[in-house]
Design a protein around this nucleic acid. Structure first.
Lengths: 197, 197
DNA sequence: TTTCCCCTAAGTAGAAGCCAGTAGGTATTT
DNA sequence: AAATACCTACTGGCTTCTACTTAGGGGAAA
């Protein structure tokens, strides 16, 4: 994917909800969150995007979420219209666009699954997802704050914090620092954690 | 949309998870639910489809959910491959396919929003959604059972039942029968219900 | 260095889950 | 036709889990 490289500082907006979706983005470094503000003031984070991920691709004409850089980030920006026109002739490109959409749908579905479980399962599910997507090191780097995780999982920051501590006590994770987590193997290999007690 | 008409009896499978997504469907009568069974046995309903709605369109090669008829239903079935080939030349068709995908993404996003609210807000949100999509009668017809609603909203059947009763007592809805609900106007016109106490 | 978030800890209160039990309607059986 | 089973929906009591609140410590940014 070629495009214009752009830099965004921590907590700066990349695009806003309801704006015309003229561009498509790919993260090259850093991390991005998409979110919506609800009528009652709460914030729901829709997804996190890490290096390599494509975002801003809503299939419609306007963005359904806002996007912000979580930390200092670099992204490639491409004109959506240009891409769509090219996709008519280049079958590979068209294919890639559909794949990106399929991935996005799967992520949403996965997110729904997370939200109906207990706090512990949500956190484990989130960490497993991050582990799968991150560079295959033993430790997971979390670019986002506890508040971001809370707003993604539909929990409070305190519950996130408590659950991290409990998971460490149970030996499921190691908290190297607050932003570096190590997942123990049995959690990675088993699809699901049934009884941790 | 043209296609092969097919009938499905109540609670019969239309397609299964992980099956090749060879077809695309449009409901002509009845109602359809898509769902996934979680590792711990719970069922998460992803969406309900009513007459006119298109489903089975996952953007990928395999279905990410199973689909069942909620009640005796008729659907039109179209070969996905044929449609995609036609879409290359017919721009309108391509447009329609993207629109359907965009709608699907929006529905998922909406679903995520519902799942982070209180039980009362989830039920109200569900009913508002059904009211918007249904034929514009005063009363909403609910083809699905309380268990279906519970599995869609991530609640228990008891909570659904209790919340329906509470909403009726507060004057937000009228339960004409258990499957016919009338939404009071102020809920329809206001975007959100803040204080019902 | 210093400030300011960010994170963790602990206790209380409330919301939703779980476990019965009841009632009404429909289908099946005798 | 009566009796029975079955399915669906509603209600009450108790338990559990997570939100809310307050407080304090620690680390990153300026």
């Amino acid at each position: 994917m070629i495009g214009t490289p752009m830099r965004f500082a921590r907590n700066t907006e990349i695009y806003g909800e309801e704006e015309a979706a003229e561009h498509l983005y790919q993260v090259t470094s850093g991390a991005v969150r998409t979110y919506k503000i609800l009528e009652d003031g709460r914030r729901q984070i829709g997804a996190f995007y890490l290096p390599g991920d494509i975002f801003g691709f809503e299939a419609g004409d306007t963005h359904i979420s806002s996007a912000e850089a979580i930390c200092e980030s670099q992204v490639l920006m491409v004109r959506r219209s240009a891409l769509m026109i090219r996709a008519i002739h280049e079958k590979d490109l068209a294919r890639q666009l559909w794949d990106a959409t399929a991935l996005e749908l799967r992520r949403f579905q996965n997110h729904v699954m997370l939200l109906i479980s207990s706090a512990e399962q949500r956190v484990i599910g989130f960490l497993r997802d991050m582990a799968r997507r991150a560079t295959k090191n033993a430790a997971i780097e979390l670019p986002m704050s506890r508040q971001d995780i809370a707003d993604y999982l539909g929990l409070t920051i305190e519950t996130i914090s408590r659950t991290f501590t409990q998971l460490e006590q149970k030996g499921v994770i190691s908290l190297l620092t607050s932003r570096r987590v190590e997942l123990r193997d049995h959690v990675l290999f088993h699809g699901f954690v049934r009884n941790l007690d």
